[in-house]
Design a protein around this nucleic acid. Structure first.
Lengths: 324, 324
DNA sequence: TTGAAAGCGCTACCAC
DNA sequence: GTGGTAGCGCTTTCAA
């Protein structure tokens, strides 16, 4: 079934059918005839043929490191929800943070004349080192979440991660905590920023930063607690760069006899639903993943539609529950 | 840049360029000339124009309830990895289990002549009630993961969830556990099957099933433990339909003074990475989400390519760690 | 082997 | 308002 078949059976020209499909004015009588035939065959115009003319399949892509990480899943979810409601199709690309995968995806997207791309996470800044990639990406509408690409149509949505951690640590200090350690997960631009927020807050009060590192999202919190105990280090608070790390940390401390929220405070980051899995429920920094994702989607549409847009920065917000 | 521009600058016809692009035999001399021009402009043929001719954009869709749930994220991840490596683009559709969303996505996919669809989860069986939807979907290659649609090109990949739980509970019984409770999350076709595996194992040994229900993935385990304590119920093992529920359960029991893995065993389901977040590490039923997802992707390709395929069922496997 | 031309299913422009 | 027709950028005959 194509527009010719419909036109023939309805006794009109394909131009008229096309006009009907695009809500242009046509005589009610013809409208009815066309409508009837379309209903009869459940005819759906081919977006591919339309795309060849309009140069758009109404499709955008979201580049993430790994959809299995809840933070990225939340981003992809919010973007998909926002854009698919507006008739866009969303392609999610799991790059695993690797150059080759990223480039392969980008090439694939370019082939279908993707309408726009949203990059989630500062990690994608590495693409700025690849001039060829930037050249290919130039002109296409791009939004970077917590990052930036040097192309002519790229805009950014930032979250003030550093201040988010800074404020959280200030909160701990104001509560009278003095022996606050930080557990850093990985060492990306963003995770380093978070840590520096911690350092800044501590230094302002003449306290000494103590940092533990991990690259394991699941057991990282346990390992840090083990290290703390082994070193006989006295602590009264732990700030974590990730909720899951904080979750393990709370569990580890509890097992070790600490009363979390009393003897020792623990604060996470992301304000994910895992805050409710913690016992006691976890205080965490809300880095507004949903808001920034929705905003990214909206900005992308603005760029696509040629509207004037500019970068945005969101503040974090400390959500206090029971662990601190 | 299009095929005409390339042809003109290379001094050949567009047919020859097309042949070059499709690896057909052409004179080495022409091949070089074309290659040079293509390189010069970074020319990429339009998949949309190709799609109009070939009737395929090389694109498939994965329908899930919610990409934020780790089980579905893992499925989408595995499918995307498998298919994008083969040049397919993958669209992930978050239906939230709602009819309207599902139909809206399906219509959107039909418009772009999607090459195939993979449905993850028995929940999508509800579509069998909608004849109009089935009619639209008829003829298009479909794979259902743990479900089935009544269309002419649909095949299924099943996991024997029931036997997975049955075997796990048998393991507990063989260990000497007698007071085994079950925590069921939601009440889908699949979660009911799991529970029936538990019931069957208990009844075979003359033990009485005790079931707790929850619809909260995060706090469900805690609520069940609270209820158990409040009812003064004696238990020596807990079987959970979801890892996250088991995780909270382990945490709750530990807080209540139980020694998990000693006084009381806990087994989860999914064998997700959360098993390593648990303390002690969680014994869990591996329902082979990665394998079944990859298999689904492979089967879909077979159906697309007109190969003869048939349904597959995977067995579960108990992965023993420390919590049981 | 190579190239001219038809066709994929639409939209847009221009007469009428 | 309506319809004929020329594209959109490819692939695929079919002659040469």
């Amino acid at each position: 079934m194509n527009i010719y078949d419909i036109a023939k059976e309805a006794g009109v020209s394909i131009s008229t059918v096309s006009k009907y499909l695009n809500n242009k004015n046509i005589r009610p009588e013809l409208k009815q005839r066309i409508e009837k035939v379309i209903k009869k065959y459940d005819y759906v115009p081919s977006a591919v043929a339309q795309g060849l003319v309009s140069k758009s399949l109404k499709m955008v892509a979201v580049m993430v490191v790994d959809i299995q990480i809840s933070h990225y899943a939340a981003a992809a979810y919010a973007i998909d929800k926002t854009l698919s409601a507006l008739g866009y199709r969303v392609i999610i690309c799991n790059t695993l943070g690797e150059v080759e995968n990223s480039i392969r995806y980008i090439d694939s997207l370019l082939k279908i004349k993707i309408d726009g791309i949203i990059f989630i996470g500062s990690i994608f800044n590495f693409l700025n080192k690849y001039d060829k990639v930037l050249a290919k990406l130039d002109k296409i509408p791009i939004i970077c979440n917590n990052g930036h690409l040097n192309t002519s149509n790229c805009y950014s949505v930032y979250v003030d991660d550093k201040k988010g951690v800074y404020d959280a640590v200030k909160y701990l200090i104001n509560k009278g905590r003095k022996k606050i350690v930080y557990i850093q997960y990985l060492a990306t631009v963003s995770s380093n920023l978070k840590r520096s927020g911690y350092e800044e807050a501590l230094l302002e009060h003449g306290l000494e930063p103590v940092i533990y590192h991990t690259d394991n999202l699941m057991s990282g919190g346990y390992e840090a607690v083990d290290a703390i105990i082994k070193e006989n280090r006295e602590i009264d608070a732990v700030m974590c760069g990730e909720d899951l790390v904080a979750l393990a940390c709370i569990s580890g401390l509890t097992t070790a006899g600490y009363k979390v929220g009393e003897d020792v405070d623990v604060i996470g980051f992301n304000c994910s639903s895992f805050t409710n899995l913690a016992n006691p429920k976890m205080t965490s920094v809300n880095n507004k993943i949903e808001e920034t994702s929705v905003k990214s989607a909206e900005l992308l549409l603005d760029v696509i539609n040629g509207k004037k847009v500019s970068d945005v920065t969101f503040p974090c917000e400390l959500v206090i529950k029971k662990s601190a």
